[in-house]
Simulated assay, not measured.
Amino acid sequence: MSKQFAVIRQQYTGFRSNWSFSTAMWLSKGLLLLVIILSACVEKIDFPLNKGESKLIVSGQISNLNEDKYVFLSETTSADRKPLLSGQYYVMNDLPRPVSGWVILVNEFGDKWDYQMEEPGKYRLDSTVVIEEGIYYHLEITVSGAKYTSEPEKMPEVVGEDELGYTFDRGVFKNNPETSFISINTKVTLPEQNKGYYLRWDVDEAYYWDLTFFPNPFNQPPPDCYVFGFPDPERITLLNGDLIGDSVSSSLQVVAERVIDESFLSRHYFNVRQVSISKSAYEYWRKVRELVNNSGSVFDSPPAPIYGNISNLDDEEEVVLGYFEVARVAQTRIYTTRADVPFFEPEVCTYSPTRPYDDYPKTCLRCSEFPSSSGETPHWWFDQ
């Protein structure tokens, strides 16, 4: 018997450290395996895992960027899981659930920094903690008396440079014909170092959403609404420097594709993080990508389990899921406006005096209807 297993890539962008996002963002149809990038949103990749005893899931990343650093703890659902209270009802489901514990970052000299629990399963290390060059770091985790650790890693020495662009197309998109979509691409200036570097790209998005402006005596406009998410959550873009010829200095990569919808009626950002990772982290993501690409379906059974770098100090046989990365990151942004989009997209929230109130989508009435949103303008919104 099996259940759906979801690999979640944790995104750590600057803006995400400033908002509290709902834990519903990282509860998906199956197991959450939270892994990396910028601060509190997630994207998922699903594939099955044999159902049985609960398994701990650990994910997170520290990097050279001056931002809050996060670790996420959760566990898979076991057959004897107690019902979960949802509103006024108890329900049974196969969703992974947050885990409470203690998380500590340790360097090779024994210096330690405690993560603070912001909510069950979500742990934050303040941006004032500087990750130093050439020093190994690892996690120490305690959950229900059991002690876990990650393999020590140090920050890679190099990372490339992205020059972002985009193209609009209309055609077959994810088996849907006559679909309008955007492709985000990068011309990568590769590190000068020959071989020995491993890159991954993570992409998140943020856009302004126009709530419906209903006439009122004070002519008060609706509040600002910024929505955050992931344009192409199942894409895993990797580059192995060992496979690049010595004379090659650049590379072209498509890092995300997304269908065009009403979110492009206003400014729509794509935040691209080029992540330089260790060889073992690269191999972890390569195996995940192979599993997704070769199975033909993300719900097919995996040929073998994919192990991360977390282990139980007292039980070598325990399987712990997830990966904790020590990375070097280069972040770049690009945005589109309504004028850039060559396709017509109808406005869904436009006010009409003859339109009944309950005919407006809920997202036209309240920003909070989006799983991840905020009324505060990201500090970088007008930098470009």
Rank of each mutant, 00 (worst) to 15 (best):
A24H: 09
M25W: 10
W26Q: 04
L27Q: 14
L27T: 09
L27D: 02
S28A: 10
S28T: 11
K29F: 10
K29W: 09
G30R: 01
G30D: 07
L31N: 12
L32A: 12
L32H: 05
L33A: 12
L33D: 07
L34K: 03
I37K: 04
I37N: 09
I37E: 10
L38Q: 10
L38K: 09
L38E: 08
S39G: 10
A40R: 14
C41K: 12
V42N: 08
E43Y: 09
K44P: 03
K44E: 15
I45P: 00
D46F: 12
D46V: 13
D46S: 11
F47L: 14
L49W: 04
N50A: 10
G52T: 07
G52P: 11
G52F: 11
G52L: 14
S54P: 13
S54I: 04
K55Y: 07
K55P: 01
K55G: 02
K55H: 10
L56K: 04
L56Y: 08
L56I: 13
I57P: 00
I57Q: 12
I57W: 04
V58A: 05
S59N: 13
I62W: 11
S63E: 06
E67W: 03
E67Y: 08
D68I: 12
Y70G: 00
V71N: 01
F72C: 02
S74W: 08
E75F: 02
E75M: 12
D80W: 14
R81L: 12
R81H: 04
K82R: 12
P83Q: 09
P83G: 04
L84E: 15
G87I: 06
G87H: 10
Q88F: 14
Y89R: 10
V91W: 06
N93H: 15
N93M: 09
N93E: 11
D94F: 05
L95R: 13
P96N: 11
R97H: 07
R97L: 15
R97Q: 09
R97A: 05
P98C: 02
V99F: 06
V99R: 02
V99W: 07
V99T: 08
G101D: 03
G101A: 06
V103M: 05
V106W: 01
V106K: 14
V106D: 00
E108Q: 15
G110L: 05
G110N: 06
D111K: 12
D114I: 03
M117V: 04
E118L: 15
E119T: 12
G121Q: 01
Y123K: 02
Y123Q: 02
R124N: 01
R124V: 13
R124G: 00
L125S: 01
